[in-house]
Design a protein around this nucleic acid. Structure first.
Lengths: 363, 363
DNA sequence: ATGAAAGCGCTAACAT
DNA sequence: ATGTTAGCGCTTTCAT
């Protein structure tokens, strides 16, 4: 065993309390095992051309020193990080966690790991965090929803393979996307309610972001196709938004609510409860997204295969990392209506009403 | 303007599709601006001793090349990452997201950024992910719940300042903790229900992890103090666990449920609904944690100041990063009962019943 | 005000 | 099978 002058004991230096100060490096391990740095490197990577005896000595030395490889150093020289950056719009919406499950599964399966950040739905924070990912040299980027402009997105995609989950993003080189058809999905909700005899079907919107506008458009077209008068009330992709929107909608006489997303639908339910309205006897509610929690809440929803979306996205991304110059692919996932207890027959007094009759607050 | 032989145009090389290949480095920027690497480094850090003219040329060159600093390189030489690693037990439980809010707020306020990982409640994945954080040389570690053994935890805390959120962790050097008092919290729930006239109060447990056992102990002691017969049924910290546990409990005649956490309480609600039992008329339900969603769900709960817990944890951690050799501090946060619509008076036929009367399934 | 040089911890030829 | 060497991209003395 060889000891160096810098660390006479060959043991990692510790402070009086036993906390480590300077972390041991390859050099320390090599000195302690009496071999060269390169051999230690080889041994630690499990190379077969290291003599068993040396390997053992090296492993022992590393263990005794509490050696921990320095990823920043190895990434630097290897010019690879084997890391995928993931940005989540909002950690509070369980929907995104479910998408992330799929992403992680696929990423790990392919031997990468993830760096997770969130902008908390704030555009400035979002940009900062994504910049950090880029500076950390992630090899690909999964955006589980985002608030970037097309230009910003395009610049990012030029820098690193990127995939957007939750809405189709066309016309940007080096960028794939995975999404459901929100127009068709909203139509499913309307059709479902029409089948149940509803005509006063209102839409609680999710604001003016792309997804919300798509869902709104789907609702409007479906209503038109059924020759029904539409009513869109302002909401947001939050419980709060659903609460306020539902109040307005039932105030105007709605017997059914197509709510922009599941979180808002939960808020809508709260508003109806507060008003003493029964679900689905007085008012039916349909959400959008299909988060698992809704099963427990007995809420009808337009469901998307969330984990699968994440998986598909990560797979596309990794394919693009391997072959960067590939035309963009846009995957559409299947959207379906999951009927649960929050949607039921229209109240008898409201049924068979003149279809396109104007809305009024007197039901 | 100077051009180098490697990049004759001074522009970053791009593939036919316009995607970047080799990323520009300081060297490229320096060449394009006609100055040395060191000056570029200084300029980019905003050093005042760079001549305005040079600074401008450098900034322009960097911009034109789409230069992006390489964090791995700078971390390596600076021997600092300014990064805090955060491990979240389970991203699906919104409770953790709320704690994370506080962590991020404090971390950013102190000029650090976070690296977020999750083990999905799987111990093996958890260890792998935490190892990655260590290899990435995070300067501190926030564990928002974890499944590590005391030995593993102790080894980690020796390596890097660490703080555990959600339960008190004593006797480990270099480790702080932030938690509520789960025994006292469970007692609040029992007291609340007793005040409402309940005596057949069952506990749907959260399994055999530390938190669940504490809450269970609190329930048992409180029941004993009220001279009531306890009934603990097996559950888990999931909707599923709450569902199953609630079924058993009401089968045994419970009129009130103290459920191990909010997620399980939501599951319990679903079970009661499926049985046609009304809440709170037939059965009262109290959750634990205080996640925001419960407000919409009108669920009574034992609430903890989640974001604050995260904030306090991050602040403790950063203090420890600055002064590593500090005795451990353990912060206790206040726990309080938030009464909502899921808890109400005991059904009349069940009230005033012999307190310690044995449980039976006939109510 | 600017540049040259050394080196952070590691890997990967290339020798031997 | 093992050691030597030359960097990866960056920061930071230390000269000038």
């Amino acid at each position: 065993m060889v000891t160096t002058s810098e660390t006479p004991t060959g043991l990692s230096p510790t402070s009086p309390s036993g906390l480590q100060t300077r972390r041991p490096t390859l050099h320390d391990v090599a000195a302690r095992a009496g071999v060269s740095k390169s051999l230690v490197s080889l041994a630690l990577q499990g190379s077969p051309k290291v003599a068993p005896a040396s390997r053992e000595a090296i492993l022992a030395a590393a263990d005794e020193l509490g050696y921990r490889p320095n990823r920043t150093a190895s990434s630097l020289v290897r010019q690879r990080t084997h890391t995928i950056g993931v940005h989540i719009l909002d950690l509070h919406n369980p929907v995104f966690a479910e998408i992330l499950d799929g992403v992680q599964e696929a990423v790990r399966r392919n031997g990468y790991s993830t760096l997770l950040v969130t902008g908390n739905a704030d555009p400035a924070t979002e940009r900062t965090e994504i910049t950090r990912l880029l500076e950390s040299r992630v090899e690909g980027l999964v955006l589980i929803a985002h608030r970037l402009s097309d230009e910003a997105l395009s610049a990012i995609a030029r820098e690193v393979p990127t995939v957007v989950v939750t809405w189709r993003t066309d016309g940007i080189a080096g960028l794939d996307s995975v999404a459901g058809d929100d127009v068709a999905g909203a139509r499913l909700a309307v059709d479902h309610l029409v089948t149940l005899g509803h005509s006063r079907i209102a839409h609680v919107s999710g604001g003016d972001n792309r997804i919300a506008l798509q869902r709104r458009a789907g609702y409007e077209r479906a209503m038109a196709d059924h020759a029904l008068a539409p009513l869109v009330v302002d909401g947001a992709f939050t419980e709060q938004g659903g609460y306020v929107g539902a109040e307005t909608a039932v105030g105007a006489g709605a017997t059914a609510l197509v709510v922009a997303n599941d979180l808002a639908a939960i808020g809508a339910l709260a508003a109806l409860r507060a008003r003493g309205l029964r679900v689905p006897d007085d008012v039916s509610v349909v959400g959008y997204d299909g988060m698992r929690l809704l099963d427990s809440l007995d809420l009808t929803t337009v469901a998307q295969p969330l984990a699968e979306m994440g998986r598909v996205a990560a797979d596309l991304l990794i394919k693009r990392i391997d072959v960067p110059d590939t035309p963009s692919t846009h995957r559409r996932v299947e959207t379906r209506l999951v009927a649960r207890g929050s949607s039921g027959m229209a109240p008898t007094h409201a049924r068979g009403r003149q279809a396109a009759e104007p809305w009024s607050s007197s039901t």
